[in-house]
């Protein structure tokens, strides 16, 4: 069985001030498994596509209270 894969990830941070920031994150993978049923070619038997997107806000109240809020989406599309 042959396995092909491709993935990328990207991060972007923006600092609103010394104590607060917004961070964006994206992750994407493509996987394909091929099983050589016939000698001349290998047919794909399984394809995967996973995606993750995340947005986070980090903040601080005073010097001792820190917090973060994030929203995360994970989606999959059969190809």
């Amino acid at each position: 069985m042959n396995h092909y894969s491709l993935d990328y990830n990207a991060k972007l941070s923006y600092y609103l001030s010394e104590t607060s920031s917004i961070k964006l994150f994206a992750y994407n993978t493509f996987d394909e498994f091929r099983f050589p049923l016939y000698s001349e070619e290998a047919i794909p038997i399984v394809k995967w596509n996973n995606q993750i997107y995340k947005a986070t806000y980090n903040g601080q109240w005073g010097e001792i209270r820190k917090y973060h809020i994030s929203i995360l989406f994970i989606t999959y599309k059969p190809r």
Binding site: R65, I69, I71, Y76, K77, P78
Partner: peptide, 17 residues
């Protein structure tokens, strides 16, 4: 075809007096 879709909301607070 099988798959899953997830949406998550998450928040955390730290307090160190």
């Amino acid at each position: 075809r099988s798959g899953i879709k997830t949406a998550t909301f998450n928040t955390e607070f730290n307090y160190s007096p």
